Simulated scan of single mutants.
Amino acid sequence: MKKIFILAIGLFVAGAANAQSPIRVGIKGGVNLPNIIKDDGNNNFNTKINPGFNVGVTLDITLIEGLSFTPEALYATKGYKSESTFGEFTQTTSFIDIPLLASIKLGGSGLNLVVGPQVSFLTSTKNKFENGFGSAQQTIVENDSDRFKKSLVGGLIGFRYDINSNVDFHGRYALDFQKNNENGSSQTPEYKNQVFSLGFGYKF
């Protein structure tokens, strides 16, 4: 994973060095609608969306007309909810996401296709169980724990609509290509994160 991180930095530096126009810095935020894709192991349960959010910074580096390199650094919450006869279980995972995106302008409008790889670094996991008698909550800082992989590689595809030269509206779908762990259990099932998101961005 260190090699992937070094490659990400290398792509960022190369894009900046070859930029044909000034680099634009931006901020962005939005709503996450995450769920999971269950893998092998103990997965005899149903899940639903656990709403969350994302917020962070972006760069917009023009490579050629109509094509930009737009890396981001985001704090994002993911996870899922699961209901049973005993109550509702909610798992919320917090990540630092590093999408390395190509933005391709479509026609003469403000619509852009965004696509590229994403590296995600797990920071913490919060588990919450609620029933008619009360609730219990556990927060785990993912430093020494081996329950989850600390970094995951995935991909992202979506759109960005430039309302004007500063403000944009965007929607996207992100999917981890790797499982959260190798040996699932009833407490920590094997799965891959998937996230639909909508939000706004502002470039300075």
Rank of each mutant, 00 (worst) to 15 (best):
L100P: 05
I98E: 12
G110I: 10
P51M: 14
T125W: 09
I37W: 02
L101H: 01
Q91D: 07
K105V: 03
S120V: 04
P117M: 06
L113C: 05
T93Y: 02
V55A: 15
K48A: 11
F45E: 07
F89V: 13
D97M: 00
A102T: 06
K81I: 07
F129I: 03
N54S: 06
I96V: 08
S84F: 00
I96P: 03
N127I: 05
I61A: 03
Y75K: 10
G79C: 03
K126Y: 04
G87M: 08
N44H: 00
G30L: 03
S109C: 09
I64W: 06
L74Y: 03
T77D: 01
T77S: 05
G52L: 10
L111M: 11
D60K: 14
E83W: 00
P117N: 09
K38E: 13
G107H: 11
I49A: 06
F129W: 12
A102C: 13
N50K: 04
L59C: 04
I36K: 09
T90E: 10
L101S: 05
G107T: 01
D97I: 02
I61S: 05
G30D: 01
E65H: 10
I49T: 14
V57T: 13
E83T: 15
L111R: 09
N127K: 12
K78S: 04
G52N: 11
L67F: 07
Q118I: 04
L63N: 11
E83V: 07
I98M: 13
F95Q: 11
N127Y: 14
N131A: 04
S124G: 02
S82I: 01
I61N: 06
E130A: 15
T70P: 03
S103E: 11
G116I: 02
N42P: 13
F86Y: 15
F45H: 12
I37M: 10
Y75D: 09
V114K: 13
N112C: 08
F53E: 03
N112D: 04
E130K: 14
G52K: 09
A102N: 09
I64L: 09
S120G: 05
Q118G: 07
D40R: 06
K38L: 14
T93N: 06
I49R: 03
E65Y: 05
G41L: 05
A102Y: 00
S68L: 02
G30N: 04
L101N: 00
N43S: 15
A76V: 14
K48H: 09
I98S: 12
D39M: 12
T125Q: 08
E72D: 07
I61H: 10
L33K: 01
V55P: 06
G107K: 10
S82E: 13
N42Y: 13
A102M: 11
V115G: 07
L111K: 08
I104E: 08
T93I: 12
F45Y: 15
F95N: 14
K126G: 08
Q118D: 08
E83G: 14
Q118R: 08
A73T: 14
F86W: 13
I36E: 05
G52E: 07
K81H: 07
L100R: 00
A102H: 05
A102R: 01
N50R: 02
V114D: 05
G56P: 10
F53S: 04
P71D: 09
G132H: 11
N43L: 01
E72R: 07
A76Y: 04
Q118S: 09
K126M: 08
G132K: 13
K38Q: 15
Y80W: 14
S120K: 05
